[in-house]
Design a binder for these strands. Structure first.
Lengths: 349, 349
DNA sequence: GTTTAGCACTCTAAGATTGCGAGTGCTAAA
DNA sequence: TTTAGCACTCGCAATCTTAGAGTGCTAAAC
């Protein structure tokens, strides 16, 4: 089996995928010959198709239908055949308008996700990962609750507030808690979370001996907050919007599939896991069909990109839609969006 | 047209609705005569059906199909014909197990909604309305942000934290903000939100003259927090779970309808408006089909009930599903759930 | 060797036709 | 007032038909 694919075959594959993306119908040899721009007959195309089929790039749903790209074919297409169209001026302006730089992370994420969904007519998603290492602790506040529990409020960065309930050994008076909070604020406020988590807490612990009782307790509270599973381990958050648009695609009109998909969205956990795998990669990444290793996404593709500040990846954004999507449009949209978000975040620092 | 419906006709309607709920198929006269338990012939049933049809209680999808209840028929059914089955011991135990009393309101709402969805096999919903009047302010905290903005953190009740950004006329130093917060905490902490909003603010404003500059400013911040549209006007929150179960029902297998429904869920606003209308009513309330005055719910019914503490309505919970639902099971589930939630809340006070 | 035209063959999607079963409405008798 | 009988209607599913699209193969042309 010749792994080599001739130039003409490649070109034909490209035209076939494009045509299939446009129409959703299997592409026959005659139509392909016409659209290819090549001056060849349908019969020649048929021969080429036979080759491509042998290589697993295309398949026919039944004997006398046209050819449809397989996932492998899509992969080939996006990897080496795709020519992306640059975005129009207008589209870029729309995005930068929508990118309100102020507002909490959540709000930013929502507006970006809405933008992606709107532009691509598919579902948009934005992941805000572990309150990034970049972020610094501003303030800690404790409030007593009933039982041996304390409500801890952390203010991080500009306007992210996290609250967690921690358990302690006994009741504390508001005054005691105030004292503990003051102490921790003195020691920790203004430092980056990363530092807080490791260096500072360790230092504090080491010099524990010379400290009075109250400080001990303050530190063990802080440990619950920062070292233990911590508030942010699962507060990995992500925003998904425009899911309902996916109902429009006929490859998903199978209620069962749709239901699986929506249940996956509700779970979040599994999608997040998937997005985690994108964190390593650079630039636009594409999962086609079952490449995600995740059954319900069989007929879907994801196009994602990371956004970053100072070279550090902060999160992932992208869209999810049917495998048969207009990659040449979607890819630049996701790409530019990631870049604009990166820029916006850098600027607001 | 005789508005009176004979006893037999009523009984037949009841059996018809029950049968239709079970099977989803139009009910023919022969089957109805058999199932009714009455010793009458199909022909007699047909006559009764003709009467019911004239009254708008049933209709036939086409000439030679059986009869199907109309929304008016459902209404009659739930209003006067329905006999609800009490819940089994087991089912009640399941609920009280799930009702973890601690945890934030959000968590409670989620677990209740999940329970409703699970028991009824439909979508469950729980509304947590305007941070209830019952609740009292525990603490206020300010943090300076860039620009003329301040992050205000309100702790309400046991563990509800709300944060809002307010705009002010100039930059404030942390010390100033601390001072303002201290002042407000002294004056307002421990009071019920309802009081805070009206009485205290008014009082403070009246005696404003004698106060120093800083206090003035503290009060205008507080006004932004409590009097203006306020954090809680739209933070009316509600939890919806199990939506995907609705995909299972064939009356909703029409993708377009499903999509409308899910979009309504995403909007939240409109559903909330609908739930608001339940706040006045007492006990279990039922919206059948277009009674909600809301197009996308045409083929759906809502069964809701309020939950309350000390006679004051705190929120609404219920389920949403196809009009053809097993009311006799769903109604007691919603009813008991509301009562258990009420009890749980009263206990945790 | 590659490309092309021709041709027989296959398969589907969309109508059209039919028979069947379920159910109705009406009438006349009990 | 109830019932039995009967003609009639309708929808559904099964079957058949046809048109169209597309393929694979072969033999001829380049």
């Amino acid at each position: 089996m010749a792994e080599e694919i001739g130039d003409r075959a490649q070109h034909l594959l490209k035209v076939l995928v494009e045509s299939y993306i446009r129409s959703g119908q299997p592409v026959g040899s005659r139509a392909l010959a016409r659209d290819s721009g090549l001056d060849v007959s349908a019969a020649t195309v048929r021969n080429a198709m036979a080759d491509l089929e042998e290589l697993g790039m295309v398949s026919s749903p039944h004997t006398s239908a046209g050819r449809v790209p397989t996932n492998k074919g899509y992969r080939m297409f996006v990897d080496s055949l795709l020519t992306v169209k640059p975005l129009s001026e207008r589209e870029i302006i729309t995005l930068s308008d929508q990118l309100g730089v102020d507002g909490s992370k959540q709000e930013l994420a929502t507006s970006v996700s809405d933008y992606l969904a709107g532009m691509t007519e598919m579902a948009g998603m934005v992941m805000i990962p572990r309150t990034a290492k970049r972020s610094s602790l501003r303030h800690i506040e404790f409030m007593p609750l009933s039982g041996h529990r304390i409500l801890a409020i952390l203010v991080i960065n500009e306007q992210d507030v996290q609250n967690t309930v921690i358990k302690v050994d006994r009741q504390y008076t508001p005054a005691e808690l105030q004292q503990a909070a003051n102490f921790l604020n003195n020691e920790l406020a203004g430092h980056e979370l990363f530092d807080v988590r490791h260096r500072i807490l360790r230092e504090l612990r080491e010099t524990k001996d010379g400290m009075e009782q109250m400080m001990h307790q303050a530190i063990s509270m802080a440990e619950q907050l920062f070292v233990k599973p911590g508030p942010e381990a699962d507060s990995d958050d992500f925003v998904l919007s425009g899911q309902t648009r996916l109902m429009g695609f006929d490859e998903l009109s199978n209620i069962e599939k749709l239901r699986g998909l929506f249940e996956a969205f509700n779970e979040k956990q599994q999608i997040l896991q998937l997005l985690d795998r994108c964190l390593d990669g650079d630039g636009v990444q594409i999962f086609i069909g079952e490449e995600s290793g995740y059954g319900v996404l069989d007929e879907c593709s994801m196009v994602t990109s990371s956004y970053q500040v100072d070279g550090e990846v902060l999160g992932i954004l992208g869209v999810i839609g049917p495998t048969r999507m207009a990659y040449e449009r979607v890819i630049p949209i996701v790409d530019i969006t990631a870049k604009m978000v990166s820029a916006a975040l850098a600027q607001s620092k």
